[in-house]
Design a protein around this nucleic acid. Structure first.
Lengths: 246, 246
DNA sequence: CCAAAAGTGTTAGCGTTACACCCATGC
DNA sequence: GCATGGGTGTAACGCTAACACTTTTGG
């Protein structure tokens, strides 16, 4: 915080615009999907992009992210307030926006299957797209999206993040499908079950059995997300253990 | 990137200042130490703070971080270019700076013991301080510093980051001391040695034995940092395995 | 009865932990 | 010789992976 030009005069330096970009993930149809919007306005108009927008003068980046998410998806405010939002990193390449200097704070958000997006206020349209089919995107959003996916994949290992993809009550089979879909692997069901239940604070039992996870088979017990953030011990990916680089 | 006010007019929105803040760590005298500067200018003048400064108009945040680091520590340019710099997160609370709207991108940097800082160009003075003795700092730097330490502690588990605290050639005893100092634990030497050598790409042997790590004992073999970013398998902390929350 | 998914049990293998022991050097 | 740190060996324990098996539902 040194090197202050001319003692903090508000116009002694080039102004920066600050935006947020959101990689909103869900698990649907056995695939990791991401929410994209079609740009209506000029830079990259007609291209698909991550939702996002400018941070307002009296707003933190986190608050801006939730506000933009509500605007673009039409989700009720309390849902948006509750969902898991995670700051990824900030992209500040001087040329990342062709018009002017824009510094963007990127977030990853995780939502359960349910919501179908309606066209947002500013975007021409919004829809879910399989991660594999998302590129190419506007600006440097290809890179942001890849970083976001890497982060989510890694965090499933050592946090209870996977429950954010599930509805409030879920079966262990559904939770396992989240892991298998995001990691692109298969997991041994008995071992998965034991590991999850042996990890304190990961899930806690709910009441009233149900069947779900498919139309057939024995009804499964329901669980809610536990309070724990970190998992002890972690749930490691089969091939190549250890968290990846961030 | 939607919700563009008045089609991108450069002055249609409130300007933001963008800064970088640096948590520069080293391991000296059996303690994790951090580089602090005494503020010369007005907001919090006389207080200690993390080094940092404004991002210039044609500069990325990463470039600004390296430039500021070179200015404040007097390290030669090639050293600064090579050292490990890691983006932490961005702090954007509207009231984090009493004067105006400042969004700050925080970085953690890791350096070996050697350099003693000289007083920087803008700071009244700069010096190494034990992490435990650092607070209170100006602005929200207490929080940034804590986040930075948590991140470094966690990343020692699953990356080869610890070698960034060591000189180009180091003994396994020195590397172990880094882990013990940063984690505040003791490790079993034979097991530490085996784990490190069994992890591909963590370290690779150098030539010519030396003694170091202390004045006495059998001379130890020297190693260089290997190319691997992620550690397979990870080197877990004794108490409470798994990566902590980030 | 059959298919499908939930749930329980068991064993072999591997990695880690904890400790004993030897080696090389300075004083 | 003795203290100090480097380096090797090894046995017990715990966790995980892999797979066999039982249970409960719908058709």
């Amino acid at each position: 915080m040194t090197n202050v030009p001319t003692g903090y005069d508000k116009h002694a330096f080039e102004p920066f615009a600050v935006t947020v970009d959101l990689a909103v993930f869900t698990v649907r149809a056995d695939a990791l999907q991401v929410l994209l919007v079609e740009r209506a306005l000029d830079p990259y108009a007609g291209s698909w992009a991550l939702p996002g927008g400018f941070v307002l003068p009296r707003e933190s980046a986190e608050a801006a992210a939730r506000r933009e998410l509500a605007e673009e998806t039409g989700l009720p405010g309390d849902v948006v307030e509750a969902l898991h939002l995670e700051q990824l990193r900030t992209y500040s390449d001087p040329d990342r926006d062709p018009r002017m200097r824009v510094v963007s704070v990127a977030f990853a958000a995780l939502v359960p299957d349910l919501p179908e997006p309606r066209a947002g206020s500013d975007a021409a349209q919004a829809r879910w797209v399989r991660y594999a089919d998302a590129e190419p995107l506007a600006f440097d959003h290809d890179r942001i999206l890849r970083d976001a996916r890497d982060r989510v994949r890694a965090k499933l290992e050592y946090t209870g993040l996977a429950t954010a993809f599930c509805p409030p009550e879920f079966t262990l089979g559904e939770l396992q499908q989240v892991y298998e879909t995001v990691w692109g692997t298969t997991l041994d069901r008995p071992n998965f079950r034991r590991k999850v239940l042996a990890t304190p604070g990961f899930v806690e039992p709910a009441d009233g059995p149900r069947r779900r996870t498919a139309g057939r088979g024995k009804p499964a017990a329901l669980y809610r997300a536990g309070g724990a953030g970190a998992l002890h011990p972690p749930l490691l990916r089969p091939g190549g253990k250890g968290g990846g680089p961030r």
